[in-house]
């Protein structure tokens, strides 16, 4: 089995397991929608204010929804021993974990990207802003998944790791949040967004090249 097939097998396995448990799949999405709909209720539904707050609120909701889904990323694999098999297997552990992270993004990040425009409309964002939100989420959420995978791997051996995971990864996720929300905001007021989008892409490429290795190192620490 070559590396590409190994990678595909990992992703397929994760997707198959996930589709057997719909509840786990849907709850971060519901969380995203509910957080986003709490703000107009807690503030007041003025078009002007919602349009100003929209980019930040939707990005923060996406960030929190990602965080919520990260907790279980490696837990089941560690509990049933399949993670140990992956560590012992001749294939690179970083590639296996990267496959799991890709599956995590397909199941949690991609639905957020798809769902976000609908919510953006309820915040009265103009077309430009909606497009910018989709674009920045498309580049930003994979970075969040990659960062979150390191945090999940570090806390995999810890009981009640939810709060700890948030404390570890939120500061690291801040640049993504800042540029994503800022780009959406700029686009909504009709300005150029290429600067923050390039920075988001740079962060994504950096995360893509380094973080799977860090996750693999973290899993090795958590397992022994």
């Amino acid at each position: 089995m070559n590396l590409a097939r190994f990678f595909a097998a990992i992703v397929r396995r994760e997707l198959q397991i996930a589709f057997k448990r719909w509840g786990d799949l849907v709850s971060p999405l519901m969380f995203f929608v509910m957080v986003a709909s709490l703000f107009p209720l807690a503030l007041s539904p003025q078009h002007e204010m919602l349009r100003n707050l929209g980019p930040a609120v939707l990005w923060i909701a996406a960030l929190l929804a990602t965080l919520l889904s990260l907790n279980a990323l490696f837990r089941a694999d560690i509990e049933d021993g399949s993670m140990e098999q992956l560590v012992l297997s001749p294939y690179p552990l970083a590639l296996a974990l990267f496959g799991k992270t890709v599956a995590h993004w397909l199941l949690n990040g991609l639905p957020l990207v798809v769902l976000a425009p609908a919510l953006a409309v309820t915040y009265y964002l103009p077309g430009e802003g909606v497009r910018a939100l989709s674009l920045t989420l498309l580049i930003g959420t994979p970075t969040l998944s990659l960062l979150g995978a390191v945090g999940a791997a570090l806390t995999a051996g810890v009981r009640q790791s939810g709060g700890l995971l948030a404390l570890l990864v939120l500061p690291l996720m801040l640049p993504v949040l800042m540029f994503g929300a800022r780009a959406t905001d700029l686009a909504a007021s009709g300005e150029q967004i290429s600067g923050p989008v390039y920075l988001l892409s740079a962060l994504f490429l950096l995360a893509l090249s380094l973080l799977p290795l860090a996750s693999a190192a973290a899993i090795r620490i958590s397992l022994d």
Binding site: L154, L174, P175, F179, L199, L203, L210, A218, I221, S222
Partner: peptide, 20 residues
Amino acid sequence: RAGGLLAVVGVVNLPIIHYS
């Protein structure tokens, strides 16, 4: 080892966060 790894990941991130 877990803390050490976090410290090393953090030190790569600190300049990124600062300039961001």
